[in-house]
Structures are given as C-alpha cells and as structure tokens.
Design a protein around this nucleic acid. Structure first.
Lengths: 245, 245
DNA sequence: GTAAATCGATACCGGTTAGTTTCGGAACTT
DNA sequence: AAGTTCCGAAACTAACCGGTATCGATTTAC
C-alpha cells in the first residue's frame, strides 16, 4: 500500500460503474455444492454451475481462476454453520452428550453435507459399483479377519461374549481406509497401535450390556453379516461382456 | 443349448484360428491397477492402460464394453490374495493377533492396495486440497466436538484421564465419513448407537495404560491437535483470485 | 446524463479422450 | 498349406468440456 508524504494512505479513487456484488460469491458456491450433491464432482461442469446459479460462465471465471479452485472453495464454504463448539449438549453423561450431538444441529443440514460428500465420492463412483468394489476388495476382507480374530478371543474367554464385535471389527479397516482415502496419512504402526490400544482393546474389555440405555437399543444393522466368521462368498463383480452387439 | 434326438448336446464345432488367451485378461487388469495406482482414476486413460499392458485398445474393447467396466473389474480383481482367513495369526492374545495381521501378509502388497485406493481417491484429490477441504469441513469439526465432550467427561471424572481421547474422538466422525463416502449407507441413529455403545463408551471405560505392550508404544501422531478443546483457527482455504493476469 | 464497470448469455477454440475402424501379421486348427 | 480368428498398432471420429472472447443490457458513481 503506497504511503504518501502527508501520511495518508492511497485510496483507490472511486470509479464510476457497477459494483461487484460480494453476496454473489456465496450464491455461486451454494450452486456449486448443489450440483456437486446432484451429479457428483465427476459430472460437474462449469456450464451446469453457471446455469444453476443463474450466472454466466464469465462471471464465475471473473471470481475464480479455475474449476478446481471453485470446487475447493465451495467445499471449504460448507464449513460454515458446522458443529458449534460453544453450544455443545450437556446431559450429564458422556453417552448422552455424544448422542445429543445427533439431534441439536439441524438434521437435514447434516444430511445435506453427507450428500455433498457422497457427491465428491461419486468421483469415486460415477457408478456406485466402483465404491462397492473398492470396499469389498479392501475393507470387507480385512474386517472379516478382525471379526474372526475377535470371535476366537471370545471363544477362548479372553474377551466378553457381549462385546459388539460386529461393529468393532469394522473400526480399524474403515478408519484405515478413510485415512488413506481422504487424509492421505500412512497406515503405519503408530496408527495401528493407537487404534488397537486406544480404541479396540479397551472397548473389547467392556460389556456394553451394562451401560444405561436412554435411546432405543437398535442393534447395529451394519454388523458383519458373517456371524460364523466364515469367509464370505466371493462376490464376483462380473461385468465382462460375452460378445459385442 | 440345443438338444438333439440322439441325446447328445450340440458342441460348437472347433474352428481353425487363434484362440483367445484368457490369461491376457489378468494381465490387462493388472496393468489397469498399476495405472490406477500411478495416475489415479481421473488420469487413467485407455491408451495408458493399453500401452502398459502392451496391448491394443481394440483388444481391451474386445473384452470389456467400456472403461467403467474395466476399472470396476480391475478393482474387484484385486480381491485375490487378500487376507487369508485360513492363515490368521495366533499369538495367544487378541492384541497380538490384531497387530500380527500387520506383518504376515506381504507388507508391500498392502502398500500397493492402499496406493490403488489412493489412486481411486485421486479423483477426490486431483488436487490433494479437495480431500483436505472435505476433511476439515466435515470430519475435523465433528471430531473436535467429540474431543471437547470427552475432555469434559474426563474433567468431571466420568472417564479415566488415561484414555486416548485424541484417537477416540476421531473414530465416529471418520467412520461416518467412510460410511457416507464409500459404503453409501445412511448415518442413522442405529449406526450412531452401536458406535457409541459398542465402541466408544466401552473403550473409554478402560485405561489403555495397563495393557501389555510388546510393540514400541508409539503415541498416536494423529491425535487431535486441539489439546485444549478450543475451536481450531478456521482454516481459510482462500484460493480466490484478486485479478486476472 | 454519461462513463465505467459488472452482468448474463452465447459463440467459439483447443485439447483431451472414449470408443471404432482398419490393417498387416501371427497363431492355431484341420 | 489353408483357412480362420485373434492380435497390436495406429489412424480416425465424435463428443465433451475448460476456458476465452464478445456483445448488448444494466447498474451505479460522478
């Protein structure tokens, strides 16, 4: 900023002409998020965003240099109104607090966020199939292994039979995958040890059954379907073609 | 299949000519995975795959109808050689078994898988920035909230101060994100309850410190950086441009 | 009122890439 | 050896899309 002799700071002399509306930015970012949630990042085009925002492409390029920057900015934009750390639930018990996080913040807002997140992943899965394939190729077998190990530990009496090993067997594989996929941190021994010693082993040493239940006690719908620990039937994603039409 | 009067089944009469080599399929799928790991799904082109496989594009299109099917098939293909449920470690303790899973299976093979998975997500992160933005917009604030709640529960004496709340505060948000991103299952109350009652609460009720340690006791490098539970400085992903060059 | 600046719309350019076609050669069957 | 089928290479087509340029309309400061 240029400093003048008289100590005044140089001000851009006001020019005639229309002013750029800054609130337009948010509208465009919102439109971007909507398109993202609908067609996914793979199907997102600048023309779609422009049409949705009721704007010209030129207007968008006047504000962001590229599609990449627009999308990144839009995703960062959705941070606003996220969980408010000043207004946390306070029910007296940790369990109540954790569950309380579910309701207070507008539930449809979280739904929207997850939809956008799915839209991002629809990069991953223009066809949902791809995400399925990745999950069943990497995470599921791993979770099955954990499940089998835990089941064996139950059998030998090392851990309580009432532990929710269906859920617990998915914790490390899922978090490792998320870590690799999004956080891009290595799956190293340090991570594994803190997961085993900080999460899984402590959890296994407690029976969840003697905890208070103030919400309906849904049993997990996502527990491993392999109750016997047997290997799952290998899902053959056979999309091979036999002959061309 | 046509049935004849004499009871014999019609057999395709063998024709002269070269036979299609089925092992070529696996080579092409492997090439696809290699390319996937190197340039990501976004940068994957049929020409790259063909070149890597030493094949013509026509050969690929003779076997798969589209790029999407090829990639899905390739991802499903990598399921082979996954964790072998028949050869699980057996160290006598669950903790040992869980940690034992880390070594036995060829470690570079798992590295490769995670690389492929990252390749898939490089859709997500043509620029790593996008994944960062998504993570810090959705998961991090959520984990911070959990961290704050847990810290409060420690302060009031409800849970042990030795619990690894840095790691534990990330469990539910990360798994919810993975669930939304890849598994495409809803984040509903049933899931939340089984995570809270099956994983987090049981884990919090145990001190990890009195567990046996037979591996170096790395403390988690991934614990929440907010040790005081204060809201993080809002990361302004400001990629906006000021003026066109 | 007028000049400057932004606006939405639209046409356009250029690069990329999925998918097709063609072709000469090689392999396998009879 | 002959006939047939598959092969890799490469040229080709067509579509899509990011990004730019242009234009007439509109707004606002002076």
């Amino acid at each position: 900023m240029a400093q003048h002799d008289d100590g005044s700071v140089e001000v851009e002399s006001a020019q005639p002409g229309r002013k750029r509306d800054p609130s337009r930015d948010a509208q465009i970012l919102d439109a971007t998020l909507e398109v993202l949630a609908e067609v996914g990042a793979a199907g997102l085009t600048m023309d779609l965003v422009a049409a949705r925002a009721g704007a010209g492409k030129a207007t968008i390029y006047r504000r962001w240099t590229s599609k990449a920057e627009l999308v990144i900015d839009a995703v960062a934009h959705m941070k606003r109104n996220q969980v408010d750390l000043e207004r946390l639930p306070d029910t007296g018990t940790l369990r109540g607090d954790l569950l309380g996080l579910f309701k207070p913040q507008s539930i449809e807002e979280r739904e929207r966020r997850l939809k956008i997140m799915s839209g991002l992943a629809s990069l991953l899965s223009q066809e949902q199939e791809l995400a399925d394939a990745a999950n069943s190729a990497v995470v599921e077998p791993w979770a099955e292994a954990h499940f089998a190990l835990m089941q064996r530990a139950v059998a030998r009496g090392e851990i309580s039979a009432s532990a929710d090993i269906g859920t617990l067997s998915q914790v490390i594989p899922s978090m490792a995958a998320y870590r690799a996929l999004v956080q891009r941190k290595p799956f190293d021994l340090a991570f594994l040890v803190s997961m085993v010693d900080g999460v899984v082993m402590p959890a296994l040493r407690n029976q969840p059954s003697d905890l208070p239940r103030d919400l309906s006690d849904h049993r997990s719908d996502h527990t491993a379907s392999r109750v016997d620990g047997s290997p799952s039937p290998r899902r053959t994603t056979s999309v091979r073609k036999r002959s061309k039409p």
